[in-house]
Design a protein around this nucleic acid. Sequence first.
DNA 1: CTACCTGCAAAAGGTTTGCATAGCC
DNA 2: GGCTATGCAAACCTTTTGCAGGTAG
Lengths: 124, 124
Amino acid sequence: MKYSKQRELILNCIKENPRHLTADSIYEIVKKDNPNLSLGTVYRNLAQLVEHDMILKISISGEPDRYDGNVDDHLHFLCLDCGKVQDLFLDELTAIRSLVEQRGDVKIESFDILLKGTCSECKK
Amino acid sequence: MKYSKQRELILNCIKENPRHLTADSIYEIVKKDNPNLSLGTVYRNLAQLVEHDMILKISISGEPDRYDGNVDDHLHFLCLDCGKVQDLFLDELTAIRSLVEQRGDVKIESFDILLKGTCSECKK
DNA sequence: CTACCTGCAAAAGGTTTGCATAGCC
DNA sequence: GGCTATGCAAACCTTTTGCAGGTAG
């Protein structure tokens, strides 16, 4: 992958924002530092970063995709009230992974786990 | 929900097809019995059936959504080779659910788990 | 110099919606 | 009869793509 200023800015933006931004939000943010950035470039770079396992793509039904700078195995929790996505790390995921591989006789490449409900903030 | 012929046909189509069809495939199939069905009607009914917990919507990044007639807690495995989605039932999901609820201090409404990899057929 | 990257704008693809009509209860 | 569902087509929104020019190595 050849260096590009745009890609660096996009990656930084994702790493600095733990909020699981959409392509469009990233575009808006990075554009402040690089005014003639184009949305197409954002999408192209996001695709490459995902391809190279440098970020994760989170796909939520009926909403634009979001991107996550943390590529370690973890799951996502979407709050149906406030719309925030939070990361959850569970050691048990490894166990589940091998359990599924045995039980289903499959080879798992990736885990996309999205839980939906109400977050601690909104439960109050 | 008022009865409609279209909705009945759509629901039957999903229940009869264990293949996790897309809205468009459902449209094509049901149209054989009901030639002047429209795609919009299919989408509207799918949304209602999901709303009433009669079917499940499976969202796969970069692909059209699919629909599942089985609403019991289970996970999905997408084969990256052949594209088939298979259901996997794991008792351990219940444990995971309460684990997450405790650990993350959240209330879970729904579970969307999509594993990707190679299925037993394609592993050969 | 060459291959990859960018900006722009147009196109694609899936899904939603407005409107007038038809069908259930 | 009233309210919901339908068909049709246009609109929507996110994402992708073609092209001509720019930039890293």
